[in-house]
């Protein structure tokens, strides 16, 4: 079942000039995303996952590479040309406390994109659609005049989702949409996002640091480290056969909420993520890696397909698989 490819990212890079040197926030990311699927992007803070999401949406101008959305190369599109495409690509932000303008009420917040893109004419029609959107995201009608500061995190995040949905997008980049919420609320929002995907055939890029959330949510998972993808595989495969040493460490670091049952052996990785400034040409993980060898210092490994759909960027991958 080859679905239509809705997004193709080819060798995307985003560098920032900093006083310390060139910061490689995103360094050569490539992937294809089928319509209606979810790609989970996982990594620790500073690995460039948020920058990747923002660059794909052209909120940041990429340094090099290609972004092809729905068959259209949007890499060089400016602000004006992008405006039309904003209807098709939307974003849900991490912090429901700062991503809503505190001076707008729920009605204004949700209707803003409808008015901006002139999707409907006339106040009555806009209001009706806004109320409909509130229903869809499970926000009671009585909150229509309420301001965000009067609402809790879960409801605010629902407003954020309604705003994104208002323009009927095809692709939504979710940047840590549930990490600021309590567990019970987290589950409510995750269920909502999943339902919406089924209903409207949405495609998600789901950025998170929480591996347990992506497993539940994604078809494919890409693990990022220092601006690069180190492993990408279908979700189940990644959890069954993590191959890159970093992925393994990341998986074993998740605290498991069970007691008394057999617990897998912890693989602690030493040290911390280094800053992605002026990187030498070697495996970016080799200083923290337990399996580092001389070969790891010779050149930065690129992604290699070790099984259908399973890509790993590790110089010693053949030894691990074989």
């Amino acid at each position: 079942m080859a679905n239509k490819i809705i997004l193709e990212v080819d060798n995307l890079t985003k560098y920032f000039n900093t006083p310390g040197g060139l910061l490689h926030a995103v360094d050569g990311i490539s992937f294809k995303l089928e319509e209606g699927k979810t790609l989970g992007v996982v990594g620790e803070s500073g690995c460039g996952k948020s920058t990747t999401g923002r660059t794909i949406l052209k909120l940041l101008q990429p340094t090099s590479g290609k972004i092809i959305f729905d068959g259209e190369d949007i890499t060089s599109y400016g602000m004006k040309k992008m405006r039309r495409l904003r209807q098709e690509m939307q974003m849900i932000f991490q912090d429901p406390f700062s991503s809503l303008d505190p001076r707008q009420n729920v009605m204004q917040l949700i209707s803003e994109p409808i008015i901006e893109h002139k999707l409907l004419k006339g106040r009555a029609a806009i209001e009706k659609r806004t109320r409909e959107l509130m229903d869809i995201v499970g926000l009671a009608q009585r909150y229509v005049n309420v301001y965000p500061h009067e609402l809790d995190g879960g409801r605010r995040q629902r407003i954020g989702i309604a705003r994104a949905l208002a323009v009927d997008p095809k692709l939504i980049v979710c940047d840590e949409p549930v990490s600021a919420l309590d567990v019970s609320i987290q589950a409510q929002v995750l269920n909502l996002l999943k339902e919406l995907q089924r209903e409207y055939g949405l495609t998600y890029i789901f950025i998170t640091h929480d591996l347990s959330v992506v497993k539940y949510f994604s078809d494919d998972i890409a693990v990022m480290y220092l601006g690069q993808m180190v492993e990408k595989a279908p979700s189940d495969l990644l959890f069954q056969k993590p191959t890159h040493p970093y992925t393994k460490a990341l998986l074993s670091a998740i605290p498991i909420p069970t007691v008394g049952k057999e617990r897998p052996q912890r693989q602690l990785i030493k040290g911390e993520i280094t800053s992605p400034v002026n990187l030498p040409d070697e495996c970016r993980f080799n200083k923290r890696c337990d399996f580092a060898h001389d070969i790891c210092k010779k050149g930065n490994p690129s992604l290699k397909e070790i099984a259908p759909g399973h890509f790993v960027a590790c110089s010693r991958v053949d030894e691990f698989v074989g």
Binding site: L59, R86, Q90, S98, L100, D101, P113
Partner: peptide, 14 residues
């Protein structure tokens, strides 16, 4: 603030 970025993502002119 994130809501400004959110407005860009929404497609509002500067």
């Amino acid at each position: 603030q994130e809501y400004v970025e959110s407005s860009y993502a929404m497609g509002l002119p500067t």
